[in-house]
């Protein structure tokens, strides 16, 4: 059901530096595919080794749409570090994505 991709090296230790990310997509629509690849690329570039990414297909779990207040898709929720942030779109705007994830360019 859940398409879960663990891309972590050290799992589950709640480190200040570890990013917990959840990406909600809708199957393999162009927006979704682009969002996945764009996000992965940014994470690999800036957060290598210190992020957890969970990719959820809302089609598979329609209930989650209500519980997570999902309207626009694709949507990325940065659970950690605080504050929680929501980003929507295909993640093609790297500047905005980085700002949304509170990642400065030199990190």
């Amino acid at each position: 059901m859940t398409e879960k991709q663990q891309v972590t090296e050290e799992s589950n230790s709640i480190n200040e530096d570890v990013y917990q990310l959840r990406l909600f997509v809708t199957g393999a629509t162009p927006n979704s595919s682009r969002a996945i690849s764009n996000l992965k690329q940014v994470c690999e570039t800036h957060l290598k080794g210190r992020y957890e990414l969970e990719i959820i297909d809302v089609y598979q779990q329609p209930l989650i749409a209500e519980s997570e207040q999902i309207i626009a898709l694709p949507m990325l929720i940065k659970k950690l570090p605080f504050p929680e942030r929501r980003l929507i779109g295909d993640m093609s705007n790297t500047d905005k994505l980085l700002r949304g994830l509170s990642i400065t360019a030199n990190t």
Binding site: F24, T26, T29, N31, R34, A35, N38, V58, Y59, P62, L63, A65, E66, Q69, I70, I71, A72, L73, P74, M75, L76, R85, R86, L87, I88, G89, D90, M91, S92, N93, K96, L97, R99, G100
Partner: peptide, 24 residues
């Protein structure tokens, strides 16, 4: 619930989430 201050738009998106929710 939808709040602009909490949301960053990073590109193309659609409202499929709303459709899924409503459809469900």
């Amino acid at each position: 619930h939808i709040d602009r201050s909490e949301i960053e738009e990073t590109g193309e998106y659609d409202l499929e989430g709303l459709f899924i929710r409503l459809g469900y």
